[in-house]
Design a protein around this nucleic acid. Structure first.
Lengths: 140, 140
DNA sequence: GTTCCTGCAAAAGCTTTGCAGAAGA
DNA sequence: TCTTCTGCAAAGCTTTTGCAGGAAC
């Protein structure tokens, strides 16, 4: 239980989404694990606490939360979808060595996007890939 | 047949990849359709010319071209993979209304990314979503 | 008591794999 | 001739759907 979790629970109540045990656990997981987990990772971890939990419920819950605007899906690699709590604008960096995804702050207004003068931009995503400092130092 | 297509054919020869009829057609398609097509779109269009063409061959060919570094895969929406000829660095804008993907030039050096000082960055992708000028004017 | 949610099983959709015949070099 | 490619069929995965029982309100 933390501030973010309670904030998210409040949001669910506002939107008339029922606070089931499973949903609260997924929400708690998302608010305490800022690791951009995959469905598999969420399932693996929560299954220990709730043996009857099914992946279907996780898919349902994540889609519900996406529709409610509480989380976002993130696709950097083509083969895996990850999920992210909605926070401030940030970029994603995926380490090709250990697979970890790091957030970094980014000033979206610093882009030079003169080509898009007549476009209505609703969403900006920045994805970087490379090697993180931990893996760089391990290679020495 | 255009300059880009011939350049790409040359690249294949250099890498000892055989110039089969199907591969040349896929290459030609990629070099003349800068629309970031999906596998389905490529299949649909080329099937008219080559009725025996299979999706397996398109998958094989695209993977061969990716390994050769001649094209890239692009994932903006979670549910569809698209393919892009390798060109200069550019951002991708997807129109939520008509689905078209537009390229726009972007100065990757203009990012303020002070958080990533110790990261080795190999790859930068920028994905925007919104409404394109054509669809904006149709809404009036 | 009603409504909505869970979770099993099955379906659906996309991509990869195995392999025999065909085509390229 | 020898190697590699094509394309069918089947397998493999992830995600969605249908639905009966159960939980939330």
């Amino acid at each position: 239980m933390n501030e973010t979790f309670e904030k998210l629970s409040e949001e669910l109540k506002k939107k008339n989404i029922r606070l089931s045990h499973q949903r609260l656990k997924v929400l708690e997981y998302m608010s305490t694990h800022k690791t951009h987990p995959t469905v598999d990772q969420i399932y693996h971890d929560l299954h220990k606490d709730i043996p009857t939990l099914s992946k279907t419920t996780i898919y349902n819950t994540l889609n519900t939360l996406i529709n409610a605007g509480l989380i976002k899906s993130v696709t950097i690699e083509d083969t895996e979808v990850r999920y992210d709590s909605v926070t401030d604008e940030h970029g994603h960096f995926k380490c090709e060595s250990c697979g970890t995804i790091f957030d970094f702050s980014i000033d979206f207004n610093s882009f030079s996007t003169q080509d898009l003068g007549n476009f209505k931009i609703k969403n900006k995503d920045v994805y970087f890939k490379g090697i993180c400092p931990n893996c760089i130092s391990e290679q020495h």
